[in-house]
Design a protein around this nucleic acid. Structure first.
Lengths: 183, 183
DNA sequence: TGATACATGTAAGGGGTTACATGATTTC
DNA sequence: GAAATCATGTAACCCCTTACATGTATCA
């Protein structure tokens, strides 16, 4: 899947592995992320498959940049993936929920601490989605008028993060209240 | 992490790998799942660590059952994990959102099909959380009065699934409307 | 002076998926 | 007669994380 995240990002403009990491961290972090090391490995694999091509740009006082571009085959592979409707449904793994499920024998204080840490984290994420991420996406599209349509989809994916974080906050408030009332 | 899902489940009652698969599918599927093959592998590892012990029960016309029990060390490891508040925040990977992010050049029809498939899937999950899962959790706890406290936490984790699915449905409706209006 | 940004990679190990292998019993 | 349920496991493979390795320039 990372394969397609990289192909999709490169379809906007040629980038290095390092660039791609930063690009994904500011745009798709909400629903997709990857480590730099894995990005480098996957780019190499994509190049062997002929879906991207790289070109080394020498730099004076910094390491050389290996800039990747999508090949015609890469563009087709991306388009194929985009139009294919067999998208496997999301199966999330949330270790906090797992922990809470088994928490009947944990003391009230520890439980409330845990829930409040969780609440802070989600509050932070919500703020991020509503301010930073929103302005960053707007900035990228403002520079290039051809991206008017793309920005609709970027905004839609960002909005999903907003709604999910709001739901999580509501749930955490309900749960904190339950623990305070029932234990 | 699967380690703790198994320890936690076994802390309610001794079970086989096969039992554990079914138990998790009816209780934690919402936020944690695993394949049978991986459950067997992890149980073996847990036994080597001394956190569970197994006992083979011969059966006449069926394969023998290997029943696992939590050892005292296992119980302590579980308790340690439960009280430790350093729970890493959820980083989800949703390939549908990834796809949508890059979908500016996908035709309206395909897009709407894709969104509606997604909507159906989430509607089904919401119904499941509100009916089946709810009654199943209630059934398990009704049989054992000592689980009165546990059921509060089971209900809380179930409720999180309900709220998240509701948020996803709202988001999908918004997004479908956006595509119909803007494209 | 120490941290951060820039820039690319390799290696070891962990955890997960898919496929394979076996085989009786029950249900449709 | 075919499919699902019960029941356990191994092997290959893939993707990901963590740690290691290197080195300059800039900023606090």
């Amino acid at each position: 899947m990372l394969k397609y995240a990289l192909l999709g990002s490169l379809s906007y403009q040629p980038m290095t592995g390092y660039d791609l990491k930063q690009y994904m961290d500011t745009t798709t972090a909400n629903f997709w992320h990857a480590k730099l090391s894995q990005i480098y490995v996957t780019l190499k694999a994509l190049e062997q498959e002929g879906l991207v091509a790289s070109d080394v740009q020498e730099q004076a006082s910094r390491p050389d940049r290996r800039v990747y571009t999508v090949t015609p085959q890469g563009a087709e592979a991306l388009q194929q993936w985009l139009t294919n409707t067999n998208t496997e449904p999301l199966q999330l793994k949330d270790s906090f929920l797992l922990k809470l499920f088994f928490s009947a024998r944990v003391d009230k204080g520890t439980l409330l601490t845990h829930l409040k840490i969780q609440r802070d984290a989600h509050q932070k994420l919500l703020n991020q989605h509503c301010t930073e991420t929103k302005t960053k996406l707007q900035q990228i599209s403002d520079q290039v008028p051809q991206l008017r349509k793309d920005v609709l989809f970027w905004e839609a994916t960002r909005r999903s993060g907003e709604l999910i974080e709001e739901a999580m906050l509501q749930w955490l408030d309900e749960t904190i209240e339950m623990v305070q009332r029932e234990l």
